[in-house]
Write a protein that binds this DNA or RNA. Sequence first.
DNA 1: CCTACCGATCGGTAGG
DNA 2: CCTACCGATCGGTAGG
Lengths: 190, 190
Amino acid sequence: MTRERIVHTAANLASDRSLDGVTIGVLADELGMSKSGVVGHFGTKEALQLATLDFATDRFRELVWEPVKDQTPGLPRLLAICDSWIAYAENSGFDGGCCVVQISYEFDSRTGAVHDKVAAAVRRWRRVLVADIEAAVAAGDLAPGVNAAQLAFGLESIASGMAPSRMLQGDADTRDWARQAMRTILGLHP
Amino acid sequence: MTRERIVHTAANLASDRSLDGVTIGVLADELGMSKSGVVGHFGTKEALQLATLDFATDRFRELVWEPVKDQTPGLPRLLAICDSWIAYAENSGFDGGCCVVQISYEFDSRTGAVHDKVAAAVRRWRRVLVADIEAAVAAGDLAPGVNAAQLAFGLESIASGMAPSRMLQGDADTRDWARQAMRTILGLHP
DNA sequence: CCTACCGATCGGTAGG
DNA sequence: CCTACCGATCGGTAGG
C-alpha cells in the first residue's frame, strides 16, 4: 500500500533530520513520486506529520511492548521492557534512532496537533511503566514507598539519552551504561 | 552590539522551535532588520548556527558552571552542579528550554560543523562531571568502583529529560523527580 | 496517480 | 546597515 510506504519513508527521514524537515518535495523525490501524489494521501503537511507519528508509535509498540506483553506483570516484565527498550534504542529500524524521541524533543515547546499527539503517546507508555512499577512494589520486588511516576521519568530519560550518547558522542558503551542506569533508577543493586 | 542581539534572538527562537527553523527571514523580522543586515554578520546560515551555538554554550557555562566553580571539587561541587543544572533546565533564559539540549537531539544523527561543535561542547562538560565524580570517589564520598563515564551519562540524560517532562507533559514535579533521580544515579541514599 | 502551476519564502548576492 | 533582486524550493491546488 502506497500510504504505508510514504509514512515509513517519512518516519525514516524524520528520525534522521527532523519531522519539520521532511518536506513534501524531498519525500516525493525519495519515493520516486510527484509531490501531488504524496500530498493527495493526506491533504496537508500536518496530516502527513500526524500519520508519520502514528506509524512511529506503532513501531515502538511492536518492537518494545509486543515482545514482553505476556511476561509476568511487575518486576519481571519491567526488566524485560528495559531490555527491549534498550535494544530498540540501538536498532529502531529507522536510520536516525527512535522517531518518537526525535518528535518529543522537537515539539515539546510548541503547541498544536503534533505536540498533543506525541504527548498522548508518551503518556500512554508511562501508564504501562507506572502499572508495572506499582505491581513490583506490591509484590515486594521494589522498595515500598518509591514514587512510580518519578521512576518512570527516570527510565524514559535514560532511554531517550541513548540517542545523543550513541550518535553524537559515538559512545561504544551506551548500551551497558543505560542498562546499569535503569537498574540503579529502579533501586536494584547489581 | 548588533551581533550579540542577533545570536541571542536566534538562540531564543531555536530553543522554541529548532535551529534549522531559524530562517534568516524570520530572524530579520523578529529583529526589525533586513535579511542582508542579518546575514552580513555571518556570511552563511551555517556560520550563524555555529555562532548561535557558541552563545548558548556560553550561557550554559555562565548559569550552571560559574556559580559553583569555587566549591570544593568532588561530591560537594557535584551536588551543587546538579542543583544549578536543574535550576537552569527550568529557567535557561531561553523561551523553549536549554538550547544545547535542543541542538544535541536535532543534530545527533547528522554530519557537519554543527554536529561536531555541539558534540565537542557536550564532551567538555562531561570531562567536568567525570573529574568531580572521580574526586568524590577518591575522597570516599562515592562508592569505589563506580564507572564515572556511566554516571555522567546518567546525569546528562536526567537533565535533558526535564525538557519533555516539563513542556510536553506539563509535569509539575519535574524538578523533584530530577533531583531525586540524580542522587539515585550517584548512589546516594536520601 | 500525473503535469502544470500558484504565491510565499528560502539562502544568499549586488550595489550602494 | 539598506533596497532590489536571483534561482530554488516551500505547501498546496486545478484539472485530468
